Amino acid sequence: MQDVEFQSCSPDSQHWMALERLFQTEWSDFRFCDSYKPDANLPPAIIALKDNRVIGGLAYSRFQEPHQSHQVIWFNALYVLPHWRGAGIAGELVNQGVGQVPKSSQSRVYAYTNVACLYQSLGWSVVNIESEPNHHVMFIDL
């Protein structure tokens, strides 16, 4: 992770649109406006920068907590450019992302992912809930 910088990224950041485009390389229908609404009360997205270029990021959304009826904060998108994978960037984004979720509002944070092994290596667990093939709902206690 030589010289990779991690920082918060909000709608007024110069990197906001670059992060959205990065997520769209993996999820073509991703749009920040779908989750980062004025009343959503989400933590800021997190970006990984190398030479002031966005090479990875993490964003949040609100969704129903598994086996509950209320909405909580989830990781909505986690992506690192292929060239930078394996350098610990995704793990650092996840760890920083967990640290931004307020413990006063919920006891766990969730992610829906096809890379469960990454989350498990960081101490996350699988939620016993139906999901698509090769995908899992993961959680970690705050």
Results as ranks from 00 to 15, higher is better:
Ala40Gly: 10
Val115His: 13
Ala18Phe: 04
Glu132Gln: 14
Asn95Ser: 15
Val115Leu: 07
Gln100Lys: 13
Gln106Ile: 02
Arg21Asp: 13
Gly99His: 05
Gly99Asn: 02
Gly97His: 06
Ser105Pro: 00
Arg21Leu: 14
Val80Asp: 04
Cys33Phe: 08
Val126Arg: 04
Arg62Cys: 11
Asn134Ala: 13
Cys9Arg: 03
Pro133Met: 03
Asp51Trp: 01
Trp124Gln: 12
Gly88Phe: 01
Gly97Thr: 09
Ser121Glu: 01
Leu93Val: 11
Ser105Glu: 13
Pro44Ser: 15
Trp74Met: 04
Trp124Met: 12
Val101Ser: 09
Gln96Ala: 10
Tyr60Glu: 02
Pro43Phe: 03
Asn128Lys: 12
Ser105Asn: 07
Asp29Ala: 12
Asp29Val: 10
Tyr60Ile: 02
Gln120Cys: 06
Ile129Lys: 12
Pro44Phe: 01
Tyr36Val: 09
Val98Pro: 05
Phe63Cys: 12
Val115Ser: 14
Val115Cys: 12
Tyr119Ile: 07
Pro82Thr: 04
Gly97Ala: 08
Val101Tyr: 06
Val126Lys: 09
Phe23Glu: 00
Gln106Cys: 05
Ser69Asp: 14
Ala87Glu: 13
Ser28Leu: 06
Phe63Trp: 12
Ser125Cys: 13
Pro43Tyr: 01
Ala77Phe: 07
Gly99Val: 05
Leu19Tyr: 09
Gly91Gln: 01
Val127Glu: 07
His70Arg: 12
Trp74Asn: 09
Gln120Trp: 02
Ala116Cys: 08
Glu65Gly: 05
Trp84Gln: 05
Lys37Leu: 04
Ile55Thr: 07
Ser13His: 06
Val127Ser: 10
Trp27Ala: 11
His70Phe: 13
Trp16Met: 01
Ala18Ser: 15
Gly56Phe: 06
